[in-house]
Amino acid sequence: MGDPDLSRVEVHASVTYASVMMRAVLRIATLIVCCSGLGLSASARPLDEVVASGSLRVISYLDNAPFSFEENGKPAGIDVEIARAIAKELGVTAEIVLRMQGEKADDDVRANVWRGPLTGGGTGDIMMNVPMDREFALRNPEAVFGNAYFQERVVLAVDPGERTDISSFDAFKTRKIGVQLATVADYFLMTYDDGALIENISHHLKPEQGVQEFLNKDVSALLGIQSKLESLLHASKGRAKFLNPDMPGIVRKTWVIGMAWKENSRDLGYAIDAALVKLSASGDLARCFEKYGVSYVSPPLN
């Protein structure tokens, strides 16, 4: 709170001004007073500050089911569950903010970890769902990357009753396959056998659209990220079996996701690491995934 006495002094001093000026003057006076104490800190903080404030500010993506999304106006999803569990281990509450994605994850790290968006809202103490990638980390020295908690992988989803032997993608020279535009899976399909599959590829922008096409049998298969496919099928009570045919030349078939925090908050990262180890050992971490129908895949030790 600002000092009320100081505030009152300012008001009385300004009464002698023209009344039309009153509002502007008071505005400035109150701003000066209130800058001293009011308001919330929204920059990434070391562990001591987080513990002292009693709240861990966690930022993850809006519209990124099953990891984070809004459900009835409230944050929900695997990342949200994990964030709450970590906060509990640290003895604080989790303040969870879901935010739109930028053009690239690099932009998101800038907005959510070290600089904050230009339109306000501030950074978080920790950002979830960040790729663990050496080149990516080198490009973003303002943030620390770690606390890996899951391994993503590209899989082929087909109908559980599928009888055709799909040991190679040649099968899609004669049948439709769905894939999300511009992903590594898309690139693999589009360039497979010099473009032999192009006419049978059905592109979607969001995994939700792809799963709908799959359930409608507009496509016979989906190539995508296992966690997304599992959770979307789980939510719509659809079923699929997951295959892992050889994907010659695919540039990335698996990757690991973890967290990012500000370069000057390393001790917070260690504390969260310790919390994650506990959650993993107790099985709570895996349960966060199972709740959304996702098979937990622990990240490999580097």
């Binding site: 993506y61 519209d63 990124n64 990891f67 994605q101 053009e103 690239k104 994850a105 769902n129 960040v130 790729p131 990638d133 990516f136 993503e152 999300q180 511009a182 992903t183 590594v184 898309d186 690139y187 990220i225 540039v251 990335r252 990757w255 996701i257």
Partner: peptide, 13 residues
Amino acid sequence: EPVTYKKGAAYLG
């Protein structure tokens, strides 16, 4: 460059 990330997913860039 084949791999860039959006919302944690791997895209082409």
